[in-house]
């Protein structure tokens, strides 16, 4: 490059001049700027009605799910009890042991992976043979979570990443489709410094999640991951890993930059 070019280019290339307000005004006048969405102001009676409907809806869903679970149990049960150690029908708490339906034997369950309800457990009398048993199914595919961590976290064995990812309708035009056949899916979650966790994802769960979210397109031969899912995975992993860090007394992760899925 010519010397005179350099002499002028350096200071002028990134020249900044503050525009006057009329520039934005004329852009707005051209009609290319979207309209602000007006906030809806609902009258009080509408708010009360909506809240009531919501509560009724929640009760209906909870009741239906309970009925379904009672109808589909697989032989093991979680017992429930009230604060005094008596098992009540209305006010129930989860017990950390399993009662076999046929033999009636009570055996202790493995502690929950991310136990945060220690106070509940302390209030429970484990050996009360008079306990009334409320049957609840364990037939939940997400209860067998497994986590594989680095050496610091070996005792916490595994977790399934996808269990609580929110299901949202997706905008198909943003689909950044990844079609792969999956044999094994692992998410390596790294911090700014070093990789800390390796989270195993059950391929079946991945497919199930993709199916739930994106219709019938995903199979073992072709998983489709839209852009939106990528973000959800990252957000979800951040939450899960911070829970793990808390449970293990480790420093929380500041930010997760990327997840790698090996397949």
């Amino acid at each position: 490059m010519n010397n005179i070019d350099k002499y002028f280019k350096k200071p002028l290339q990134n020249l900044e001049v503050t525009p006057s307000d009329k520039v934005w005004a004329s852009i707005e006048d051209a009609g290319v700027i979207g309209k602000e969405k007006k906030a809806w102001v609902l009258p009080l009676w509408s708010k009360i009605a909506i809240a009531a409907l919501f509560i009724i809806g929640m009760f209906s869903v909870a009741y239906t799910r309970l009925q379904d679970q009672l109808n589909n149990h697989n032989g093991s049960f979680i017992a429930t009890a009230d604060q005094e150690g008596q098992f009540g029908d209305d006010e129930q708490k989860m017990l950390p042991f399993v009662i076999d339906q046929e033999s009636g034997d009570i055996s202790e369950m493995e502690p929950p992976t991310f136990a945060s309800e220690e106070s509940q457990q302390e209030n429970i009398t484990k050996s009360n043979p008079e306990a009334k048993v409320k049957e609840m199914t364990l037939d939940n595919p997400y209860n067998n979570n497994s986590v594989a961590l680095d050496s610091k976290l070996n005792e916490l064995d595994s977790i399934q990443m996808l269990k609580s990812l929110p299901i949202q309708p997706l905008d198909n035009k943003n689909l950044d489709v990844l079609e792969v056949s999956i044999e094994r899916a692992v998410a390596d979650v790294s911090t700014d410094e070093t990789p800390l966790f390796r989270v195993q994802i059950d391929p079946d769960e991945l497919i199930r999640f993709a199916d739930q979210n994106f219709g019938e397109k995903s199979t073992k031969d072709g998983l489709k991951l839209p852009t939106n899912l990528r973000d959800k995975l990252v957000v979800y992993a951040e939450g899960q890993l911070n829970q793990l860090a808390d449970a293990s007394g480790l420093k929380r992760l500041s930010k997760i930059n990327e997840i790698e899925i090996i397949y």
């Binding site: 792969v180 990528r230 990252v234 990327e258 790698e260 899925i261 090996i262 397949y263």
Partner: peptide, 10 residues
């Protein structure tokens, strides 16, 4: 085995 990296959207 192939590697696929998920990046957060900037």
């Amino acid at each position: 085995m192939r590697l696929f990296t998920i990046h957060k959207e900037s």
